[in-house]
């Protein structure tokens, strides 16, 4: 990993920024925890901590997988809709086609990959802007889910062995948390310990530069979107198990929560900068806030407002020192103002 002094220095500077951002976020998380613990009698219990994890698994998965995409400078607005589409297709494969649940699950993951592949082709091969492509598929996937079920058809009565995935505990933790942990570790390793991850950053900083450096830019971008499709499908299966039903409105609006968590976690929306653990902190900060406000008996609207404030505060905190330094600079130096 060692490089010349110059790039080392740059990496050091970037690392420091990230470190600072994540420290702030961690402080926020701790402060949230202590505050809610002092207000809500049962907030700090282990049970409640598990509940928080259980409820944030799906959005957490979407946020994790959004991180590599945003690292390339892209965005994926279709993940929430894809979750809905995969959920009802999973139900349909099981109930109407008559597949066994594991087979249906595998097929659902494949469908997720295929849907992600559609985004990938349009964005990577045709070089269309990710924002508009995924805005189109956001509408397309949700629309397909509604058309297939006519909005009405709801898949229920899943066997208990399957529902256990979303509602029971396994080896001390809620079952889906294990899935979440595995995906977290896999994506962390992928982004931070492989050349794949490094090429994503390179693309995020400068796609042209990455191309000249010999990186397979198109393929890397495509892989990031396909990965998002697969993990959205996994989130759909977990969602279905947690609620015990699959319906066309599953996951409405989740894309915004996921994006919020990623940028709150310090990933630059312009690409190139960001970490998976930052995203994890982002997800946690929002989930704890969401849960804690119920224990503090605050209305739901407050959760939305405070998430917005948190977002501004976390980003502003990173920008403030630079701004202050800039304001201070002309006073101390005699250099003429530019």
């Amino acid at each position: 990993m060692a490089a010349s002094g110059n790039t080392n220095q740059r990496r050091h500077a970037i690392g420091e920024f990230l470190f600072r951002h994540e420290t702030i976020l961690l402080l926020v998380l701790v402060a949230e925890w202590f505050y809610f613990n002092s207000v809500g009698r049962r907030f700090g219990t282990l049970d409640n901590t598990f509940e928080i994890m259980r409820h944030s698994a799906e959005i957490g998965l979407l946020a994790l997988v959004m991180t590599p995409i945003i690292l390339t400078g892209g965005i994926d607005l279709s993940v929430g809709s894809l979750l809905g589409l995969c959920a009802i297709l999973f139900g349909k494969l099981w109930r109407d086609v008559g597949m066994s649940l594991p087979v249906a699950a595998v097929c659902t993951l494949l469908i997720g990959a295929l849907a992600g592949g559609l985004n990938a082709v349009l964005i990577a091969r045709l070089r269309l802007p990710a924002l508009i492509v995924t805005l189109g598929t956001y509408s397309l996937f949700r629309g397909l889910a509604e058309a297939i079920t006519r909005g009405v058809d709801t898949f229920t009565n899943f066997p208990d062995s399957f529902l256990a995935l979303g509602q029971q505990h396994f080896a001390g933790l809620p079952t889906q948390v294990w899935f979440f942990l595995v995906v977290t570790i896999a994506i962390w390793l992928l982004v931070h310990r492989t050349t794949f991850g490094r090429s994503l950053r390179a693309i995020g900083f400068s796609p042209e530069g990455a191309r000249y450096a010999g990186l397979p830019v198109e393929r890397r971008i495509a892989q990031a979107y396909i990965l998002a499709g697969v993990v959205s499908a996994l989130a759909a299966i977990i969602y279905t198990a947690r609620l015990g039903q699959a319906k066309a409105d599953a996951g409405t609006g989740y894309e915004l929560f996921a994006i919020t968590a990623v940028v709150l976690g310090g990933t630059s929306i312009f690409g190139g900068i960001g970490t998976v653990h930052g995203t994890l902190f982002g997800v946690a900060a929002i989930a704890v806030l969401d849960n804690g406000l119920v224990h503090a008996r605050q209305p739901r609207e407050m959760a939305g407002m405070l998430t917005g404030v948190l977002l501004l505060a976390a980003l502003g905190a990173g920008a403030l020192p630079k701004l202050l330094a800039k304001l201070r600079a002309p006073r101390h130096s005699s250099a003429p103002p530019s």
């Binding site: 915004l256 994006i259 919020t260 940028v263 630059s268 929306i269 312009f270 998430t307 917005g308 404030v309 977002l311 501004l312 980003l315 502003g316 920008a319 403030l320 630079k322 701004l323």
Partner: peptide, 11 residues
């Protein structure tokens, strides 16, 4: 503050 506009306006 030079914050990214998509994040500011999301908030």
């Amino acid at each position: 503050l030079r914050l990214p506009s998509i994040v500011v306006t999301l908030a």
